[in-house]
Design a protein around this nucleic acid. Sequence first.
DNA 1: TATGAATGAGGGTTCATTCAT
DNA 2: GATGAATGAACCCTCATTCAT
Lengths: 192, 192, 192, 192
Amino acid sequence: MKKDKEKVKEKILAAAEEMFLKKGFFPTTVDEIAQKAKVAKGTVYLYFSTKEDIYLALFEEKLKIGIEILEKVKNMPISAKEKISLIFDEWFSKIQKAKGLSSFLALENINISPKIILLLRKKIHPKIRKIFLLIKEIFQEGIKKKEFKNYNSRLLSVIFLHILQTSLLFLSFNIKEDGKNLKEIFLKGVER
Amino acid sequence: MKKDKEKVKEKILAAAEEMFLKKGFFPTTVDEIAQKAKVAKGTVYLYFSTKEDIYLALFEEKLKIGIEILEKVKNMPISAKEKISLIFDEWFSKIQKAKGLSSFLALENINISPKIILLLRKKIHPKIRKIFLLIKEIFQEGIKKKEFKNYNSRLLSVIFLHILQTSLLFLSFNIKEDGKNLKEIFLKGVER
Amino acid sequence: MKKDKEKVKEKILAAAEEMFLKKGFFPTTVDEIAQKAKVAKGTVYLYFSTKEDIYLALFEEKLKIGIEILEKVKNMPISAKEKISLIFDEWFSKIQKAKGLSSFLALENINISPKIILLLRKKIHPKIRKIFLLIKEIFQEGIKKKEFKNYNSRLLSVIFLHILQTSLLFLSFNIKEDGKNLKEIFLKGVER
Amino acid sequence: MKKDKEKVKEKILAAAEEMFLKKGFFPTTVDEIAQKAKVAKGTVYLYFSTKEDIYLALFEEKLKIGIEILEKVKNMPISAKEKISLIFDEWFSKIQKAKGLSSFLALENINISPKIILLLRKKIHPKIRKIFLLIKEIFQEGIKKKEFKNYNSRLLSVIFLHILQTSLLFLSFNIKEDGKNLKEIFLKGVER
DNA sequence: TATGAATGAGGGTTCATTCAT
DNA sequence: GATGAATGAACCCTCATTCAT
């Protein structure tokens, strides 16, 4: 049944996400993922061709959520500043539900695996570009409307994503309130 | 000779730093470090007892630089805001010289190695605490003097270090200018 | 299938026994054991967690055989001297079938591996104690019944086991007859 | 000076003997031997070309002591039985002084190192043969004079050496008395 | 599809031996 | 001679991946 198939894949992804967050990519073994997902090790390889593949699937999932949020908010009839604020809130709460896989967005993770990631980045690079583009456009809009100071819009996008990531990191240390403060600081910092 | 001995250790550390930055901790092999340092693999183990040990030595080195900067700036007869700004600049340029090992400061790296890091963190944890304490005190001073808004000083410290890290990340992508902008944004964001 | 699983383990143990006997513990590599057992190196580690573990498994196996013999003979309605003689013969022929792993009983082997043996001896020590106890009781019985001279029964046990070991050593040099003579000498030496 | 030279070699041998006895041949590192002898590692290699060489030097030393005893006793105007008894006592006390390197005589040690021992055995094999020959001759003499039962004299020699070894083993467990008992048992066992 | 035993390449670490000082 | 830093071959063990059932 299709549903069962999806369920197994889902279980594996959930298990992998949990382990990757807890121990990181390399120290997590496929064995552990399989055990946590309650399937056999071989089963994991029916759904994913490599360990990197699992990581990338998770990565893509997160990016997809981000893109959905961005596209939804972008066309709302609100100010650029409000858009950024909303994006922050939405993303924050969505990812929070997903138990905070913030680190998947970290540029640092580019290093994560030398073997395959370069090849597979082709799959996710476009999505990352799209996210950057969408955010950049909102910042450009805000700069044009004099809502934000005239910083390089690409810079603002990168900072925004990092701020978001930092605030998500707070989650894992259970300091939810601080995320909101961080947003406030950022918005005050960039406003005109 | 003492000098020679130190030189070899230095060479290994430099090689390791380069490799860790390029490929990350796990994908870097001791063999690679040795080759880059132009010593035999066994030689590495004359100076460091494990691969983790090399990583931690680098980590400590960076922390030491940070602490030195903080202690120097702390007692200067300038405003808290100026102190933060100066710390940012100093750190930025010092670490820049050290070829940017920003990621060593990332909280995320806690995950880096499950085997030994827990044991050895004892060596490093106190230094990290010290750094946080020093920065926190400056923020507390600034809040008291009404230079900064009344945010939680611990939060401000964490954000500051993350901002710093982000700006150092820019370095590896060769966008030096952006670092300064990031500082500006942060300071404007937190000022009263 | 359970049978197959057991077979592989058995193959590994047999290969290890052969190699340990031929070359000793340290010069034998896990690779060699695997090759001799016609499995991959990794397979060995599916059944044993360390090289020491293999050695200890063999050791235990031999001890188990010894205990079985001792318990069987102990309650027979024969004289103590006949018991000792029978134990000697049985042990000799049993271990002979097992291709003579006599040296596993040697006290000298205590040295064999500094790393783990100390920990694992816990598993084996009780069995050795049991063997000594069983033999000692037979000697005590013999001394009480005036079959043997009044030597320390602990001493007699140790000597007996060493005599046995020596006779087994003869096997590897293909001097089966001598084993019987050795027994004879020992029994005559201790009789009243 | 010759004396100094000899002293260093002696120190190394003494250190090696202690370590080999404590930990066995393989687990003992050249480093440990050097440290215990209070010389640099390189110095060890000025006196011995390999680790095996050190072992063999010790072995030879013990064999020499044995040969000396045998040759001295052999021509004494006493019965064969008394000769064997005397040899046992002398050997026992001599080696005792040498902190009991009994295990060097163990045939099992043939396994000790696959690398070089086969080549170097050439040096010690003749000495072992000589020892066996000398003992065998005493037993033959005793058999001829009807002091001993008519066992194979080669067998008796092997047993005698093993008994000796066992009794020396008792030393390390601090049971000196038992050694004498063991001799007694052996002599009673083989007498006519 | 699911399993988990089997594989074997690869990596961290040790240590006998060498060699420049 | 003496030193001890440097070497690198060798070995134990792990773990991603495969494959027979």
